[in-house]
Write a protein that binds this DNA or RNA. Structure first.
Lengths: 248, 248
DNA sequence: CGTACGTTTGATCTTTCTCAATAATGGTGG
DNA sequence: CCACCATTATTGAGAAAGATCAAACGTACG
């Protein structure tokens, strides 16, 4: 499947994997008006306080959601992979309550909010697929609360890596050797509630234990089972369709 | 409005406050088959791993959602107040990914999942109201990730108290003098990622600062503005309808 | 009136943060 | 292709927030 066929093809594919859609419904999504845009590394896709006019979907590249505290600390609350469906958070709420920013250069498809709302109203099955997507993201948020609230640094980071790997894999983006990790250590810290300094030390410890192997921006998982154990990782919360194995 | 009229009246009221519903839609919700049940303090409403057959709504009393880590630590990921709509988390996902438990003695209305799904399919406006509710809960989860990930103990607890107060108030359950706080200090710790010991000390400090006043299980807010400031609390993330003030 | 649960307090220990400096890396313009 | 700059990664030393352990105290309730 070439993303170039239709930028929304990946979105349909992902929605369809959890909530099978009729071909009429699929085509209705593909027929949505949509503007394709390439964004540089670190560009804002949505800013807190914005009234949302478009719902973006990630076509390629990586992105993250984050909020800032009053004293300027950043907390990343979610990661997004190529193919992640439209930003449904902002479909029915009238003001963005957080920021969405690219982690790498990325392509997005911008669909007017009104067109999406109309589609959801006219096609209950599509609305249901949207709902399922939102519910799964909710479940991921809950797991992040647990991760950040009740696990130590080692587990938090291991858990984050496991989630990233499994999600990449389920989108068919995992190479056999491991994967690119498009985050700096500071961003890993922002996602886990730690400092970049401590992330660095913890990453080194995980490496020394043989649970991960790093090289530049890529990570391998030489001992996947133990990494999962270290991260207290169980994939139930991702509510994935059937199941593929991860390439180690 | 007597909850005894129809257990779902409170649910309709809450959904309607954010997403106005036609009276036909409202009546369709009220006409849902539903079993009313009284649960003791600490009863499970949903257990992780369960295949959901019913969607519960809270009629009276308080409840919380939580997950456990492998080593037995508990993290509370959300609180629920009387009138909180049906547990839509479990409407379209096939397995419960976390637990829901009562904090106090509580009454719930159990609606069969299939009846709710049918309603959502037949009435797009109701489906949209459900979606909005889920999106707002999502937003609250994101804020909790921030709270637990990037704020210190004082802020976390102040934030939790602010959220509780504002949500109580928006359901019309805030007394002028303050409110009942149906949580033990250990539960406050489980919601904020802290130990009960540290919660105790922090609560005392907040009290010494004059930001809260405690008496048994009740809390007052003698200095609401400063409490909000201490908790870095901004209510945007709650996406409340218009707005009422909190009784101090 | 006793038991169970929740709160309070003290002393000590750990994890993680802070501050600060150095070393890689990657990208850029010349 | 090379020198330079801005990021990012790495390391060390010391400080701090919060955890842990342990005990005593209240309070509600059967």
């Amino acid at each position: 499947m070439h993303p170039s066929d239709n930028p929304l093809a990946l979105v349909v594919r992902k929605l369809n994997s959890r909530t099978p859609l009729s071909s009429a419904d699929q085509e209705a999504i593909l027929a949505l008006p949509c503007e394709r845009k390439t964004l540089e590394h670190s560009s804002y896709i949505v800013r807190e306080g914005d009234p949302p006019t478009h719902c973006p979907a990630l076509i390629s590249g990586f992105a993250y959601r984050h909020k800032l505290t009053a004293d300027g600390a950043r907390q990343i609350v979610a990661l997004h992979l190529p193919g992640d469906p439209l930003d449904l958070q902002h479909l029915f709420l009238d003001v963005a309550d957080h920021n969405v920013q690219t982690l790498t250069r990325a392509e997005v498809a911008l669909v007017p909010r009104s067109a999406l709302q109309k589609l959801a109203r006219e096609r209950p099955a599509v609305a249901e697929a949207f709902m399922v997507n939102v519910l799964v993201e909710s479940s991921i948020f809950r797991e992040w609360v647990v991760n950040v609230g009740r696990r130590d640094a080692r587990s938090r980071i291991a858990h984050l890596l496991c989630e990233f790997a499994i999600r990449l894999n389920s989108q068919g983006l995992m190479e056999e050797y491991g994967c690119e990790l498009p985050m700096t250590q500071e961003q890993i810290g922002d996602a886990t509630g730690l400092t970049s300094v401590h992330v660095n030390r913890t990453l080194k410890a995980l490496q020394a234990e043989g649970l991960i192997a790093r090289n530049r921006r890529s990570v391998k998982f030489p001992d996947w089972e133990h990494l999962k154990e270290a991260g207290d990782f169980t994939e139930r919360y991702l509510h994935l369709a059937p199941q593929q194995a991860v390439a180690s």
